[in-house]
Amino acid sequence: MIGRLRSQTIETGKFLADWMEDRTGVVTQLEHFLYEPVPKRGAWLYTLGSATLFLITLQFLTGILLLFYYVPTTDHAWNSVYYIMNEAYFGQLIRGIHYWSANFLLAVIGLHMARTFFTGSYKAPREINWIVGVVLLLLVIGLAFTGYLLRWDQDGFWASVVGIKIGSYSPFIGPYVTHFLLGGDVVGPATLARFFAIHVWLLPAMIAPFIGIHLYLLRKHGEFGAEFEYTDRISKLHERQREEGYRQHEFEDDEEYDYDDELDDEGGTTHHRRDGE
């Protein structure tokens, strides 16, 4: 009885998977996603990137939850945050996760960036991914800055005042930046509404596609961990180059022709291998 049930379940599962594969191709996609070879030696180092992704996901989730109680008006914003902290079920946890994961996010992004910098992972062909990463960093800083004001408490308020004043020192566009952020010439209801719009819609809507591009490019070029992932191959390369150097001394005349020929061959194989992927 149980055996038959199990086999039936497996059959059904297979049927559903096949059906989904036929209609969407999602199973193949998923397999590509899950079973792509990644560098093995520095695996713990590369968790920094995924930790960033995880923390941003937490930000999105808890942020959406907080919106169910938060009120973006000057007369009620502080009260609603106070309610979340003291009355709402698990409000302290939801806001705590939003707050603490934001703090961790900034720290982890710093580490992720330092890792990328010191291992030279931004070099060709991954330049665009570095640029997208810098854009993401700026967006996260923008989110951190705008989120601080939303509590409408003394800390966030005065930090934002200082931030806006800093913007006012921008050469030539200073007053415009300030008035745009303030939504007027003084801080007031419009300021909170603007920071709310920027924090809750504008920047998250911008950050999501950039995260998508970041991940797509990561998968396109493969993860570049660090040079120590390639030590064997590098030493082989150097050995071969050394030997070629010796040969060059021995056969001065034929060398050029040989070398070109070899290069072409390799170009062909490399190209072929990439096509196969």
Binding site: V161, K165, P175, L182, D185
Partner: peptide, 21 residues
């Protein structure tokens, strides 16, 4: 009244208002 002595510096470059409050 809500008005301050804004010093006219180089226009657009160093004119500062107390803005904000």
């Amino acid at each position: 009244k809500h008005a301050y002595d804004v010093e006219e510096g180089i226009p657009g470059f160093s004119t500062q208002e107390p803005y904000v409050v």
